[in-house]
């Protein structure tokens, strides 16, 4: 038998924990985004609902739930319904191997990082199916652009993760943080990889300045043009959870996960994750959108060679030492 004993209670707790993390994160991040957007634009953002506007997301959620879900008559209904689900479920599962402290981890996997990468690739499938199922030229165009963008930056993303794996010697996320406990945080050993990783995840999650998938002024609303009500919010839940996951991986790989002087582990982890999320929101409200061909050229011609060189250099240095 592969497994000798599963603790049923632990599995149930794990599912509940991940669901809570995803849900509370969505509520908090939407509020944070609107507050950050407001203050960067010299206004206040939501202040009415709840203390300092914290329950604004709940109000938005209730509004979206009460909206009618419109199915276009010529849309391919099974695909139309499946696309947001395919966008959402892999990100849920990818949160399983992520450790929030030495003991707070849903399930320890030897190949945790590999699983996260593999499930991140399924995002493109969901986007393509969403663009296809709508039977709408704008949606298909937006989806193809989004997938081309994500694929162009997938390889630099992997090549930025590889030096960290070389340094830590393992794919297990917990062991990578433990490896940073003895030596310094990997961001100091791999600054170039850290910087490129930040660019790559801003790209992967379709955030400005790279949000061609949504592109509110160009493509109506990209691949989720035809989605209304709760299905639209499913896409946004998937996007924010993917941002959370990418930030969690960034803090584990480069900033040492739960390591920190005074505060307990999970608090440090959350601080680091929300630092990256704040960074992504900062990018969104500061930079204008990049042109599609410029962005693709940057990815293939500049980011890929640099990340490859960085990886070869790291491997060479590690072999020499």
């Amino acid at each position: 038998m592969i497994i000798t004993q599963i603790s049923i209670l632990r599995t149930l707790l794990m599912i509940l924990g991940i669901t809570l993390v995803v849900g509370i994160n969505a509520v908090f991040v939407v509020w944070l985004e609107r507050k950050v957007a407001g203050h960067m634009q010299f206004r206040l953002g939501p202040t009415e609902v709840g203390p300092a506007g914290l329950l604004q997301t709940v109000a938005d959620g209730l509004k979206l739930v009460s909206k009618q879900i419109i199915f276009p008559s010529s849309a391919d209904t099974p695909i139309f319904i499946l696309a947001p689900i395919i966008c959402l479920i892999p990100v849920f599962v990818a949160l399983v191997p992520v450790p929030f402290s030495e003991t707070l981890q849903a399930h320890e996997l030897d190949i945790g990082l590999l699983l996260v990468i593999a499930l991140g690739l399924l995002n493109t499938l969901g986007i393509l199916l969403a663009g296809w199922g709508c039977d709408n030229k704008y949606a298909l165009l937006g989806a193809s652009r989004a997938v081309a963008q994500i694929l162009a930056y997938k390889i630099p993303l992997l090549l930025c993760i590889l030096p960290v794996i070389l340094l830590a010697g393992t794919f297990s996320l917990r062991e990578i943080v433990v490896a940073q406990q003895e030596s310094m945080w990997f961001a100091l050993y791999q600054p170039v990889a850290f910087f490129m990783y930040l660019i790559a995840i801003t790209m992967e999650t379709n955030r400005s300045p790279f949000d061609f998938a949504e592109a509110e002024s160009e493509l109506v609303a990209g691949f989720h043009t035809e989605y209304s009500g709760m299905m639209f919010s499913l896409f946004f839940l998937a996007e924010y959870t993917y941002m959370f996951l990418a930030s969690a991986i960034a803090s584990i790989l480069f900033l040492g996960g739960w390591l920190g002087p005074v505060l307990p582990g999970p608090v440090w982890m959350l601080l680091k994750i929300y630092f990256f999320l704040f960074l992504m929101m900062w990018f969104r409200w500061t930079f204008p959108r990049v042109r599609v061909d410029q962005m693709l050229a940057f990815g293939w011609k500049i980011l890929l060679p640099i990340s490859l060189l960085n990886f070869l250099l790291t491997a060479g240095v590690m072999a020499a030492l």
Binding site: L114, I117, A118, L121, L122, T124, L125, V147, L151
Partner: peptide, 11 residues
């Protein structure tokens, strides 16, 4: 399998 087939070949 998920990475190569579902993530790349299927896309």
């Amino acid at each position: 399998q998920i990475m190569i087939y579902v993530g790349a070949v299927c896309v």
